[in-house]
């Protein structure tokens, strides 16, 4: 029993320690960046890193997001437009689609794709850089790790996930409808009308806010675990796994908190 208590206590302290370090890393990357923005030097270089991050996290993820959004959209639309009329709930079709796709699945599924592709890549890249002493080399050159490596990844992930989420919603609602059209009888204009009635600016705002926070969570957790790698290449896959698992858990926790705060 005492062993179990000790284990729980140690895990709790470890989580507190990690949370403190992650907040510190986030604060430092923001502080260093805002301090150095005034100098202008190096901003072109930072912008190049940012561009690459948006390209990798956003543009390169479009094919996988397209497939998932179309299929998921088709499933949700087919289920709602076939099942709801059977219980007299035709009027709720728009509400269900907005609720499921725009409020919940859009941000969450996009975040999962970004975690799988970019979160793992960030953790692996930074882990390998640590092992190869590239991080130390940057520090010795007077290059701020938080400004050069972390900040562009945070902003890049944030911008990319926002755009991907909007793209996901559009593809799921429109593309999903087209795929489902094979077996649906609901006319397109009626379908769009019902969605527009159910949709309000608050839903879009909260969805975008969730995505922005997801972007920050994924980038900062992946960077933190990647930078924790010290000297051994076998630490890299372990760090990547920790980055993915912690990002998923924190994103789901945040999503649940938002749902509880805004919709209950």
């Amino acid at each position: 029993m005492s062993t179990l208590t000790g284990w729980v206590g140690n895990r709790f302290l470890s989580i507190l320690h990690d949370t403190n370090k992650i907040c510190d890393l986030l604060y430092l990357s923001l502080r260093d960046t805002f301090i150095s923005i005034r100098k202008w030097h190096g901003n072109r270089l930072i912008f190049q890193v940012l561009q690459k991050q948006i390209l990798f996290t956003g543009v390169d993820a479009l094919p996988i997001i397209s497939i998932i959004s179309l299929l998921l959209g088709a499933i949700v639309i087919t289920q709602s437009t076939t099942q709801l009329p059977m219980i007299g709930g035709e009027d709720f079709i728009g509400k269900v689609i907005v609720l499921v796709i725009i409020r919940e699945l859009g941000p969450l599924v996009t975040a999962m794709v970004v975690i799988a592709r970019s979160g793992s890549a960030i953790a692996t890249e930074l882990g390998i850089m640590s092992v190869n002493k590239e991080i130390e080399a940057l520090e010795v050159m007077g290059i701020s790790i938080t400004r050069f490596l972390i900040f562009p990844r945070i902003i890049g992930s944030l911008i990319a996930i926002l755009c991907l989420s909007v793209y996901f919603d559009i593809m799921a609602i429109l593309g999903g409808f087209i795929i489902s059209k094979i077996q649906l009888v609901t006319p397109f204009d009626v379908y769009i009308y019902r969605i527009s009635l159910a949709l309000n600016p608050g839903d879009i705002g909260i969805s975008l806010m969730k995505c922005a926070v997801f972007g920050v969570i994924i980038a900062i957790l992946s960077s933190y675990h990647g930078l924790k790698v010290k000297c051994c290449s076998t630490e890299v896959p372990q760090a990547t796994t920790r980055a993915i698992v912690s990002s998923i858990v924190v994103c789901f926790l945040f999503n649940s908190a938002v749902t509880i705060i805004f919709y209950i």
Binding site: K133, E134, G142
Partner: peptide
């Protein structure tokens, strides 16, 4: 410290180059 490092060079065992 970063300012001081501008006047320092450091050559790593394998160059420490960004891969």
């Amino acid at each position: 410290l970063n300012k001081i490092r501008l006047r320092i060079g450091f050559v790593f065992q394998d160059g420490g180059l960004i891969s």
